[in-house]
Simulated scan of single mutants.
Amino acid sequence: MRIRPLRPADSEALAELYRQDRAFLREWEPDEPDAFFTPEGQRASVAQALRESADGRMMPWIMEADGQPVGRINLTGITLGSLMAASVGYWVPRRFGGRGHASSAVGQVLDIAFFELGLHRIDAYVRVDHAASLRVLAKHGFHTVGVSRGHLYASGRWQDQICLQRIAPWDDGVRMGADFDDALLTPAV
């Protein structure tokens, strides 16, 4: 399984995956209009993601196994400067669940976030009853920060979500980033 950048050409395959998973998604995701589940709706969704990517606010990927899309993963809310953080979110259709795709994708995205982008923290929000997703994040060193009450409207009500964080493995509490020049920390004599 690999991740690759989202492309406009992915719209039809995504529409089919979302359409097949629509009943399952009702339980976990925000309500979407009927158009979201069509190729046209996915073209609009992909176009929006690519605009946000061009603006540096988001990095959208497709999870791909054996050359076929098996899910999406995104870094969103990318903030640089003194925060150096983003949030990760992902979706694997029910029929592809339990095969390690989400775990592999999260690992790949963390490597990009921490070692290519130099981000310091990645947040994730997961519904309190989504055990599979909580296991994926725990496997990658995410720790619970707290509960965000009424965080997301899904399945007909406001859902509480657990806020989890993963701090960069290079964090020593002092350095600015993974490639920060340690010589700058040495006082001149």
Rank of each mutant, 00 (worst) to 15 (best):
R57L: 14
P69V: 10
V46N: 00
P93S: 07
D55W: 11
G100S: 06
R94Q: 11
F115D: 10
M58Y: 13
V88S: 02
V46W: 01
T38E: 03
V106Q: 01
L83M: 13
V106H: 02
L119S: 01
L83I: 14
P60W: 04
G107D: 12
P93G: 06
G67P: 10
R72C: 14
S82C: 04
T79V: 15
N74W: 05
G41E: 05
G77R: 09
E64C: 10
W61S: 05
H120P: 03
L75F: 06
H101L: 13
L80F: 15
D123C: 07
G71I: 04
Q48P: 03
D123P: 03
F36E: 00
F36Q: 01
F37W: 01
G89S: 14
T79H: 11
M63P: 13
G89C: 07
H120K: 01
G67E: 11
V92K: 11
D123F: 03
R57P: 07
R51P: 15
V92S: 05
G118Q: 09
M63N: 13
L117P: 12
F115W: 15
H101F: 15
S104V: 15
D111W: 13
D123I: 05
L119P: 01
A113E: 09
S87D: 13
R95A: 05
A54C: 06
P93F: 09
D123T: 06
G89F: 06
E116Q: 15
Q68I: 09
P39F: 02
R51C: 10
A113R: 00
G71T: 10
V92R: 10
G97P: 02
I122V: 12
W61Q: 05
E52T: 11
G107E: 13
S53W: 11
T79D: 09
L119Y: 03
L117W: 13
T79E: 13
A47K: 06
L50K: 00
N74A: 06
P60F: 04
T38L: 00
I78T: 04
G56V: 12
S103V: 08
L119G: 00
L119A: 03
G81S: 07
R57Q: 10
A85W: 05
G100Q: 14
A113C: 07
F96W: 10
Q68F: 06
S103I: 08
V46L: 02
G77Q: 06
S87M: 07
L50R: 00
R95H: 12
A47F: 14
W61T: 03
R99W: 03
S53L: 12
T38W: 02
L83Q: 13
F96G: 03
A113V: 07
